[in-house]
Nucleic acid binder design. Structure first.
Ligand SMILES: [Mn+2]
Ligand SMILES: [Mn+2]
Ligand SMILES: [Zn+2]
Ligand SMILES: [Zn+2]
Lengths: 131, 131
DNA sequence: TATAATAACGATAATCATTACTGAATGATT
DNA sequence: AATCATTCAGTAATGATTATCGTTATTATA
């Protein structure tokens, strides 16, 4: 009954707490500063396993590398088209709204919605005044 | 003042009407039956140009090749996790709901939503009884 | 119409993200 | 210690997409 923790996986967890929604490459670069022999393949393998096990979320953005999120709570993401930062929706995103959406989608498509992937884009509060 | 369209681009348009939300490779395979010398690069270039010009939509799905949609109306997509088919939401998806969502996202993230990408997944009506 | 300029093509090479493979290292079990 | 399983680092392979480039249409012009 041994819990398996490789030192490398622990470093990956640390990186996920330090870096905000990082890509695998960003996790790799971060770890490399302290542990140069880490392999990008190890990062990908661990992130993939963790995502498959539900320990982290894998976020897919159009035309961009996947990002990873250690916040596994049900939340959405909004990306700033100017600075590229990614923001979490907090719990305040009314679950009722989402359920209404699901119902509308099911009525329209016949699909019984099990999961949804949604990404919002726009100008963040910092970038908005500038542009 | 000539509107230029190559025969190949016209074939691509045809393919988009025949095939439901096809990938570039599917468009290529379709055209190839009648015009074997078409190049996959030509398909990608034309689809990319058409998408950039707003003539078609490019849909990005996690871990899968992009798909193209000649229906440029504002609509969402729902994929069946069993048969892989992709369904359109018709206009009945209440725009009011979406605006409420945008507002909730802005309140939560500070992002003034300009666009959203959303994909729903679940079992379609055909596949549901079977599984 | 002949010809020069442009635009698009087909073939293929290159890129980028990601996964798969391999032999070595590490850790657990008996 | 001998064995068995897991994970590693390194690297090769894959798959989707884009870039390059010489050739072939297509449009404009003399
Ligand atoms: Mn998040
Ligand atoms: Mn559609
Ligand atoms: Zn910003
Ligand atoms: Zn189905």
């Amino acid at each position: 009954m041994t819990k398996r923790f490789s030192a490398q996986r622990e470093m990956i967890r640390d990186a996920l707490t330090m870096l905000d929604h990082p890509t695998a490459a960003q996790v790799y670069d971060h770890i490399r500063r302290a542990y140069p022999q880490i392999s990008l393949g190890t990062v990908y393998r661990n992130l993939g396993d963790m995502a498959a096990g539900g320990e982290v979320l894998r976020l897919s953005f159009a035309g961009a590398p996947d990002r990873f999120d250690m916040n596994t709570a049900d939340h959405c993401h909004a990306a700033c088209v100017w600075c590229g930062r990614i923001f979490d929706t907090d719990g305040s995103l009314p679950a009722a709204l989402l359920r209404e959406l699901d119902a509308a989608v099911e009525k329209s498509t016949g699909i019984a919605v099990q999961s949804r992937a949604m990404l919002f884009s726009g100008a963040c509060a910092d970038c908005r005044p500038v542009h």
